[in-house]
């Protein structure tokens, strides 16, 4: 009987405390991936999930909800209860670009409760390794438009290519429709196109030293030197090009209590520092770059303003 009363008292105490006080004790946390298994978004979540669960003393279950260009998964996070048990990875700046284009995605990025950013990939301009071109200036010096290769017109790389080259004032044709970023890079090697802009971690497979040596970099879209001997955006006088990145941003449903966000943020931070995740990242060429909730929210707002300036370039006309 005494025991029963004790339990009752404990339960009452719990009921009085906010709902998140014991988070995440009872339920597994669903980590939504808005794409099919095996891709970049899927892989990073599946690497973080077990380590995050361990750090938080909970079970984190990755769930692939693919479809509609990733918006279906994002919608399911957006519509979930803000109780911390549903979070998701977002395609940024892909979704940001869609918003700039005025597409109804079924969710509003400015309302998402941003929790953290796990990694950031930066872009570089690549040309064939045996090409005589060694700078963007030389690449754009000809009379004809320079041809670039990309997957889809709404892909982040294509949007990056068109905006970055228009800032530089270089006349280009972006040949889209390649099945994947690998195929787009092979189009440069086979000579179908002149150059391509892709994340450095993807290009690494084709560079001398880290890969097959078919391609070379002539510019990195960054303010600091990332690859030895390769000019940066700041070097050539366009520091704003460093805004183009590919982020791995985690968010939850709108209106998530700050306490919950902090618990999840800490869990993700601990996972990012775990041995399992760091050794995976080193092997897979992923640049881990942890940002907390406040920094991530600020970055999301900046990105939105940044892409808004180039709304007319983002919309394709062909």
């Amino acid at each position: 009987m005494k025991k029963l009363i004790a339990t009752g008292v404990a339960a009452a105490a719990l009921a009085a405390a906010p709902a998140w006080a014991d988070f995440p004790a009872d339920n597994p946390i669903t980590f939504v991936i808005p794409y099919s298994p095996g891709g970049g978004f899927d892989t990073i979540v599946r690497q973080f999930a077990p380590a995050m669960g361990e750090a938080m003393g909970a079970t984190v279950v990755p769930e692939n909800i693919s479809g509609a260009g990733g918006t279906r998964g994002a919608q399911s996070v957006f519509r979930a209860d803000p109780d911390g048990y549903t979070i998701g990875i977002f395609n940024i700046p892909g979704f940001t670009v869609n918003e700039v284009l005025g597409r109804d995605q079924g969710f509003d990025l400015s309302e998402v409760s941003w929790i953290a950013n796990l990694a950031i990939a930066r872009y570089a301009v690549a040309v064939p390794a045996d090409s005589e071109i060694n700078s963007v200036e030389e690449l754009c010096a000809g009379d004809d438009p320079v041809k670039f290769s990309d997957t889809g017109a709404t892909s982040t790389a294509s949007v990056t290519t068109r905006i970055a080259m228009s800032i530089i004032g270089c006349d280009i044709i972006d040949v889209t429709g390649y099945s994947g970023s690998n195929d787009a890079m092979i189009a440069v090697i086979s000579g179908e196109v002149d150059a391509t802009i892709k994340p450095i971690s993807s290009l690494a497979r084709y560079l001398d030293g880290s890969g097959s040596g078919d391609l070379k970099l002539i510019l990195t879209l960054s303010s600091d030197e990332l690859v030895e001997g390769v000019a940066t955006a700041a070097d050539i006088g366009y520091p704003e090009l460093a805004n183009f990145t590919l982020a791995r941003v985690i968010g939850g449903p709108p209106g998530m209590p700050a306490e919950l966000v902090t618990v999840l943020e800490d869990g993700l931070r601990a996972a990012g520092e775990s041995e399992a995740v760091t050794s995976w990242a080193a092997g897979a060429g992923v640049d881990l770059e942890f940002m907390g909730a406040a920094d991530t929210t600020a970055m999301m707002n900046e990105l939105s303003t940044f892409y808004q300036q180039y709304a007319d370039i983002v919309a394709v006309e062909q």
Binding site: G38, Q47, R205, Y206, G211, W280, G283, G285
Partner: peptide, 13 residues
């Protein structure tokens, strides 16, 4: 995809 999941990075090499 299985290779990627195991932390390998398929590419030209």
């Amino acid at each position: 995809a299985i290779l990627v999941l195991h932390g390998m990075e398929p590419g030209p090499t």
